[in-house]
C-alpha cells in the first residue's frame, strides 16, 4: 500500500508554542524550533519529512495556525 505523504505549513509568527501538535503527531514530524518568534515563543515546525496528513496537529491546535496538505493520489509513492 502506498504511503500517504503530507506536509504542514505553520503560521509560526502566530504559534504560541504550546506543543499540543507535537504531542499529537503520530510520526514525530513536528518539533519545537530553536529560534523564537517575535512574541518569544519557540514555535512548532516540521523537523522531519514523515507527515502522513492525518490532520491530528491541526485538530488540537488552539490557535488554528496549521494548514495541512496531502500528496495528490496519483503522485503517492
Amino acid at each position: 500500500m502506498a504511503k500517504v505523504k503530507g506536509a504542514v505549513v505553520i503560521n509560526t509568527e502566530n504559534c504560541k508554542g504550546c506543543g499540543l501538535c507535537i504531542y499529537a503527531c503520530p510520526t514525530d514530524t513536528l518539533g519545537f524550533s530553536k529560534e523564537i518568534n517575535s512574541k518569544g515563543f519557540n514555535y512548532s515546525e516540521m523537523v522531519q519529512d514523515e507527515c502522513i496528513a492525518c490532520v491530528s496537529c491541526a485538530l488540537v491546535c488552539p490557535d488554528a495556525v496549521i494548514t495541512v496538505y496531502r500528496m495528490k493520489k496519483d503522485k503517492a509513492v
Binding site: P62, V68, M71
Partner: peptide, 29 residues
C-alpha cells in the same frame, strides 16, 4: 525545521474563513 515542497499536494485542512485573522488572547494550549 525542514522545508517540504507543496508541489502536487492538495490543501486538506486550513483555518476556517469564519475565524477572523486575529491572534486570540488565550494562553498557549
Amino acid at each position: 525545521g525542514i522545508t517540504v515542497s507543496l508541489e502536487n499536494m492538495d490543501k486538506i485542512y486550513e483555518r476556517p474563513k469564519t475565524l477572523k485573522d486575529q491572534v486570540m488572547h488565550y494562553c498557549p494550549g
